[in-house]
């Protein structure tokens, strides 16, 4: 792992991953959207509104996965001082914020016809909104320093402290009475007997795979930008200091 913390080694490897995930993302999203919007059946209660789930749930999973990966990067940066881990936090934060926004907006669009309200301050919805603000905070903090390394380290601490929110989001629907329904798939009791019918589960998982590949593409492109931006920064400093 330490070998790929070197930006040069990372670049050689990332080219192949980028091509592979781009192809996979296009294929999975195309297939997934066909299954989700056309081939899958309506729900017995919500009828066609259920199709929002195929965007909402993968976006929600990704919003938490991205934050968890940023927490790992923050710990790696803090302990081993790998510059690339700092770049990863900067690269991932805006993408994570977008997926969280997609989750919140699609959830509101689903809540209006299903529950009868766009938004309630229950534990699940509120904790996801806090996750969105944590992303915005990380973006703002990483750009608030003249020295980018200092900015990345400060952001890493914010990300580590904010990771306390992840288990709260996950278990909010079990710990408290919430309007949001409990997990259909990702709980121990539900692994064996999913609450989602097979015909709806397949499109959901295909979409989730597509979202994940899309994220890998976006984060690699943004990482390349971060590496290039750092090179420009170093060249500027050299030019100023002679």
């Amino acid at each position: 792992m330490h070998k790929y913390a070197n930006p040069k080694k990372y670049k050689a490897l990332s080219k192949y991953i980028l091509t592979a995930s781009l192809g996979l993302a296009l294929a999975l999203l195309g297939w997934g959207l066909y299954l989700a919007l056309i081939a899958s059946p309506p729900d017995y209660q919500q009828s066609e509104t259920v199709r929002i789930m195929y965007i909402h749930v993968p976006a929600a999973w990704l919003s938490m996965f991205i934050y968890a990966s940023m927490t790992v990067a923050a710990i790696v940066l803090t302990i081993w001082r790998h510059t690339l881990a700092g770049f990863y936090i900067r690269a991932a934060a805006p993408i994570g914020a977008c997926f969280t926004a997609a989750c919140l907006i699609s959830g509101a669009l689903w809540g209006q016809p299903t529950w009868g309200t766009w938004w309630v301050w229950d534990a699940r919805l509120t904790s996801v909104l806090i996750l969105f603000f944590l992303y915005l905070g990380a973006i703002a903090l990483s750009n608030a320093y003249d020295n980018p390394d200092k900015g990345n380290q400060a952001t890493a601490w914010l990300v580590i402290v904010g990771s306390v929110n992840l288990p709260i989001i996950k278990f909010s629907v079990d710990w408290w009475n919430t309007l949001h329904q409990p997990a259909s798939l990702t709980s121990f009791s539900r692994m064996a007997a999913p609450g989602i019918h097979h015909d709806m589960l397949v499109p959901l998982l295909v979409m989730a795979g597509g979202f994940l590949c899309l994220y890998v593409v976006l984060v690699i492109l943004r990482l390349d930008n971060e590496i290039a931006a750092r090179k420009i920064h170093v060249l500027r400093l050299k030019a100023i200091n002679g």
Partner: peptide
């Protein structure tokens, strides 16, 4: 004063529900 419907965690096609 207000009434909201709660949705459970089960999703299935109408035929399966019937």
């Amino acid at each position: 004063r207000t009434l909201l419907a709660k949705h459970d965690e089960n999703y299935m096609p109408p035929e399966v529900a019937r």
